[in-house]
């Protein structure tokens, strides 16, 4: 099926429900040509449609990234959805935006998505040198976010740290692996971490990264 009619349906939607349905249909086709329209939907203040658009953009993957980065940064709502999409896509071009979101965004759900995204970047195609630089920046940001005030963000940081160790292929003995385990141990420590669920998740990550 051609994408154009689906795009036209989004553009001509005259109610919130119609927009949601049209966006979901467009998102399902996962065609790169849909990306600009799906990015536009992120700015419409229709969270149901935005959820569908984020799913579609993640399915499109890398071809959607430039459109996401070109988004009007002053539209806070759209930017928050873009962070979620970039976190799901895992393209390193989203690195700066994800780090900024994790460390400065006022919305816990945005910081949460960014933390998970920093553990989900696709590093395989990079040169060894690039990979080291990107990984270090992810690591620094995630470690800084261990002290986030919201439990759900710290939970996502534990998930992100585990993902980063895997994505980098770091194993025991690598300095990065050591830093990640130290941060996870901090999140698993009852004297510093009040949320039981965060401690459990950190312990699970540690157990997976340091099989005894």
């Amino acid at each position: 099926m051609s994408v154009q009619p689906l795009i036209s349906a989004v553009e001509s939607a005259s109610s919130a429900l119609e927009l949601l349905r049209a966006t979901a249909a467009l998102a399902r086709c996962a065609d790169a040509a849909a990306a600009p329209t799906l990015v536009e939907v992120l700015g419409f203040n229709n969270p149901g449609a935005a959820v569908a658009a984020v799913d579609g953009l993640i399915a499109i993957g890398s071809p959607a990234v430039d459109h996401l980065l070109e988004l009007d940064q002053r539209n806070y709502g759209a930017r928050a959805w873009a962070v979620r999409a970039l976190a799901g896509i895992g393209d390193v071009r989203g690195l700066d935006l994800l780090i900024e979101a994790l460390l400065t965004d006022v919305g816990p759900s945005v910081r949460r998505a960014a933390a998970k995204g920093l553990g989900n970047l696709q590093l395989a195609a990079l040169t060894v040198g690039e990979r080291a630089t990107v990984a270090q920046r992810c690591l620094d940001a995630l470690i800084e976010a261990v002290s986030d005030g919201e439990w759900v963000v710290r939970y996502a940081v534990a998930v992100g740290l585990e993902g980063l160790a895997r994505g980098c292929g770091w194993s025991q003995g690598h300095p990065g692996h050591g830093h990640i385990c130290t941060a996870l141990a901090q999140l698993g420590d009852p004297s510093g971490e009040e949320a039981t669920v965060v401690r459990l998740r950190a312990a699970l990550a540690l157990q997976r990264l340091q099989p005894s």
Partner: peptide, 12 residues
């Protein structure tokens, strides 16, 4: 049912 939601906590 289809009215969407913001996804966040009003922490402060």
């Amino acid at each position: 049912f289809f009215v969407a939601w913001p996804d966040d906590a009003e922490q402060h």
